[in-house]
Structures are given as C-alpha cells and as structure tokens.
Computed example of a mutant assay.
Amino acid sequence: MLDLAAALRAWAEEGRDFAVATVVAVGGSAPRPPGAALAVDADGTAIGSVSGGCVEGAIYDLCRQALRDGEPLAERFGYSDEDAFAVGLTCGGTIDVLVVPFSAGRAVHAAALSAAAAGEPVALARVARGPAGLLGRALLVRPDGSSEGVLGAGPELDRTVREEARALLETGRTGTVELSEDGTHCPGGVTLLVESAVPPPRMIVFGAIDFAAALVRAGRFLGYHVTVCDARPVFATRARFPDADEIVVDWPDRYLRGTATDARTVLCVLTHDAKFDVPLLREALRRPAAYIGAMGSRRTHEDRERRLREAGAGAAELARLRSPIGLDLGARTPEETAVSIVAEIIARRHGGTGAPLTGSGSPIHRPGREVQPV
C-alpha cells in the first residue's frame, strides 16, 4: 500500500473511496514481493500491480467487492496444474493478498499515506490473518515508537506489534510477523503484514566523468537518491549531470566524512586517481554501506590495494571493496558500464550469482532474501 503512497494520498485528498490489495506473502516463484499493491477506486480506476499481470483481473474484482461490502478480505492465488489459463500464477508460485477498503481504518491509513508520501519513515502494520473482526486492522508506527490506531485485541498485542514494526522500520524492511492474540511470540494466532516506508537509499558517485553520468541515470532508474561529488567545479555541474539529485563540489574524502551513510548506501568511486580514491576508500571502508566499488584496471586495483594497506586498511576492510567495479558483461560504453555496475549492486543486494539463468536451475525469484551488507 505504501508503495503507492503519493497517488493514494491524492485520491484521499480528493475524497475518493478506494480499496487496496497488498501482497502479504509469496511462495515459490512470484513476480512481486510483499508490499506490492494494486488500488481500485469507486469509478473503477486502477493503479499499481500485485502480480505483473498474472492475476490482476481477479484481484481487481476483489477490490470492487471490498468497496461494495466495506469489509477487508484475504485470498490466495497460485498456479493451476489443470488449467494453465485459469486464474492463477503461471510462473508457478503463490501469493497471499490482503484487500482493504480505505474506509476501514481511514484515519490510520490517511496518516500512513501522508507520512510516506512526504518521505517520512513510517511502518504500517495490518492484520493479514487472524480472528474474525481483526482482519485489516491497522497500526501506524513511527521511528520513535509512537503509534496511531489499535488492533482491537488488547494493549499487549499492540505493544508487541509496535516493537516488531519499529525493528523492521529501522532496517527499511517489509515483512510478516507471527504472534498470538495476547502479544506473545507464539505463531499461529495473528499474522501481520508490516510495510516500511523509508526515504530512498543513497547512491554517491565520486568522479564527475562521462561514465558517472550514465551511472547516475541508472541509479535514478533503480530508485536511489543520487549524489555526484567531485573536487573540480568545471566538471561537477548541473549541465553535465541533469539527472543527479545533488551535485557536490568538494574533496571526496572530506565530503564523505561529513555526510551520512547507512546499510543501504551505495558508494561508487570512479575517480581512479590515487590522490582522490585512496583517502576516499580508506574512509568508505570504515563506514556502513551496502556496496563499495571502485573503477580501474586490475593493475590500478593492485596499486590501490597496496596503498590502502599502507594507509592501515585491514583484510576485512579490503574484502568489502568491489574492484574492478561491476560484473563481467564485456561492457565498453559508459551506458554498458553503468549496467554492469548496477547489475553487481543488485546481485549483491539479493544474493544473486550474476550467472545466466538459462540452464542454471537456480531460482529466478528469491522472495524475502536480502543479504546483509559487507
């Protein structure tokens, strides 16, 4: 639901009534992760997607039903061996979907959409399975632990859900939580979907070169907030990087020391100049980051690694460095190189191998798998 926050907030402000179908859980090979949503308003307008097209028609009908009845409902969709053209997921997986009319818990939903659309970190916990009367009940949780709404099964359940939702929010994750009705961590009583809305992760590109311009475009396409940093004002300009969210003229290592990074941040060092990248990488390797990559030939990397060791970098820190940067795609142009870099970033994030899927036998989708930053 929160992945459609900006559009749904506009619908709410216009006074539209609508229902939202949200993926709660996936099994096997499924095209969209938990949190993916499709919304339908009273006029039949639809936005979003929950399955990449496999079961959109059936879920559209469920949204219309929820609008008519004013009640939440849950449904499971999966592959039909008897009839591949029946409603189902022809990719072979299953998805559990929660459908909730906006009117059910309007105040909490409106607050969640407003916060998420404004870029504020917030978690929305909703009952996806449980006793009659609890389905679709919502609790909004903020980073400081404050909340809005009640689930309706007592204060202990609300307290535990606040703790679980806050923990997921801190890591920017969306997932399910299994609890008992009394709030203890015993599965089987209540299943909650916790959606986290956090500001987009950062990609910081050091080195205002042509390859950086292509990487900036790729980073924006993937949803990163992209910063370009270079000490040379003649190169670090808006004209050269119109797609960047931010352009900084500063010495790279000094800028990095003064800015915030976290476990989702991507750092791409394209300077391949020792006077810039050695002090920069020395700082980067000490910081939280999901990915740290540096451009250059293998000879450049060997010299860079030697200089980093001389500067005090240990084996564990050097193991975090992806250099030469990117996957082996045979890339030559700036655009091809950008694809190789973001391909490695995606593979590192989800635990992919980078190998061709043809003949590999490995899963295409890895639902819920997020490798920890290294």
Score class of each variant (00 low, 15 high):
Glu195Asn: 07
Ile364Cys: 05
Ser360Trp: 04
Asp83Thr: 07
Glu178Asp: 13
Ala7Gln: 14
Ala319Thr: 10
Val50Asp: 13
Val216Phe: 02
Leu67Thr: 09
Gly154Thr: 03
His272Asn: 05
Val87Trp: 00
Ile341Val: 13
Ala19Cys: 02
Asp245Gln: 10
Leu169Asp: 15
Ala284Glu: 07
Cys63Asn: 13
Glu246Phe: 06
Cys229Ile: 10
Ala37Thr: 02
Arg162Val: 15
Ala212Trp: 00
Cys54Leu: 14
Val194Cys: 07
Ala294Pro: 01
Asp144Thr: 08
Gly48Thr: 12
Glu370Asp: 13
Arg142His: 08
Asp210Lys: 00
Thr265Asp: 11
Gly219Ile: 06
Arg9Glu: 15
Val40Asp: 13
Ile345Trp: 04
Gly57Trp: 15
Gln372Trp: 12
Glu120Trp: 00
Thr271His: 04
Gly314Pro: 10
Val248Ser: 04
Pro334Arg: 05
Arg137Val: 00
Tyr291Thr: 08
Ala316Trp: 05
Glu156Tyr: 07
Ala208Val: 01
Gly361Ala: 09
Ile59Glu: 13
Phe85Cys: 03
Leu256Gln: 13
Val24His: 01
Arg240Thr: 06
Thr227Asn: 03
Arg286Ser: 13
Arg309Lys: 05
Phe241Asp: 12
Asp3Gly: 11
Ile47Arg: 15
Val122Ile: 03
Thr259Asn: 07
Arg306Leu: 09
Thr90Leu: 11
Glu156Asn: 11
Ser51Gly: 14
Ser362Trp: 05
Gly207Met: 00
Thr90Tyr: 05
Gly70Asn: 08
Arg217Asp: 11
Glu335Asn: 06
Phe85Ile: 00
Ala274Ser: 10
Val371Ile: 10
Glu305Cys: 11
Leu38Ala: 07
His109Gly: 06
Ala343Phe: 07
Asp245Arg: 03
Glu181Val: 14
Ala118Val: 00
Ala115Pro: 02
Gly219Thr: 09
Glu370Gly: 06
Ala331Gln: 08
Arg232Phe: 08
Arg68Leu: 13
Ala74Gly: 08
Leu168Cys: 14
Leu139Ile: 06
Phe241Val: 04
Ala213Val: 01
Ala260Ser: 05
Thr237Arg: 07
Leu140Thr: 00
Ala167Arg: 15
Asp303Ile: 01
Glu71Gln: 14
Pro72Gly: 14
Ile204Trp: 02
Cys91Trp: 06
Glu14Asp: 15
Gly52Pro: 15
Gly188Trp: 08
Pro101Cys: 10
Thr191Val: 14
Ala289Ser: 15
Leu62Ile: 02
Ile59Tyr: 07
Phe276Ala: 07
Val50Gly: 08
Ala36Phe: 11
Thr271Asn: 01
Leu179Thr: 09
Phe77Gln: 01
Arg173Gln: 15
Gly44Asp: 15
Leu89Val: 04
Ile204Cys: 00
Val24Lys: 01
Gly70Val: 04
Ala21Gln: 08
Ala165Cys: 13
His109Phe: 09
Thr259Tyr: 02
Asp303Pro: 00
Gly326Pro: 03
Ala58Gly: 12
Ser49Lys: 12
Ser323Cys: 10
Arg322Tyr: 04
Ala338Trp: 09
Gly44Met: 15
Asp273Leu: 02
Pro242Asn: 08
Val278Phe: 03
Ala86Thr: 01
Asp245Glu: 12
Glu335Cys: 02
His301Thr: 03
Glu75His: 08
Ala284Arg: 10
Ala165Trp: 10
Leu169Met: 14
Phe276Tyr: 09
Leu357Ile: 13
Arg240Asn: 11
Arg9Pro: 05
Ala338Glu: 05
Val234Ile: 03
Cys63Leu: 09
Gly368His: 05
Pro279Arg: 11
